[in-house]
């Protein structure tokens, strides 16, 4: 029992360290796409988004968040049948959350590249968004 426990404990720590190193290396790759996000294969420059699109403020739990409507950003990418699609929002370290069009239509993207969904728990508020994929 002693030996089994030591081996399992050692393996858990090794797996954790390897995962941590992997996450850090993915974070380094993200730095190159800092000024843009990819929406359904289209590269969208954030300077254009925040320079040209109207900003909106949403209030969640007495905190105000300001940003550009996600629906407007999706429209920039010319997504077809956007209401019937699902959207995978991918952030740094490949953290992702999938949401529906009804969520997208209420959500905003802040200048810090964080999505805010007033009707969804904070775990859906992906930080450092780098890509939005469209899935059926």
């Amino acid at each position: 029992m002693d030996k089994v426990a030591i081996v399992v404990a050692f393996l858990l720590i090794i797996v954790g360290i390897v995962s941590g190193i992997n996450l850090r290396s993915q974070g380094a790759k993200v730095a190159s796409t800092e000024n843009s996000i990819e929406v359904d294969g289209e590269i969208i420059l954030l300077d254009d988004v925040f320079g040209n699109l109207q900003k909106e403020t949403v209030e969640v739990n007495n905190v105000n968040y300001s940003g550009v409507r996600l629906a407007n950003i999706i429209e920039l990418a010319n997504v077809s049948e956007k209401e019937s699609q699902h959207y995978v929002i991918i952030g740094e370290s490949d953290y992702q959350q999938t949401v529906s069009w009804s969520d997208i239509s209420k959500g905003i993207l802040t200048e810090e590249k964080r999505v805010i969904f007033p009707d969804l728990p904070k775990k859906f508020w992906v930080k450092g968004v780098i890509r939005i994929e469209v899935v059926k």
Binding site: L12, I13, V15, G16, I17, S19, G20, N22, L23, V88, I90, S93, D94, Y95, Q96, Q97, T98
Partner: peptide, 16 residues
Amino acid sequence: ISDLISIIPRVLASST
């Protein structure tokens, strides 16, 4: 399930 898979490396790393 794809959302869950995406957080597994983060879970393994932070649980360390």
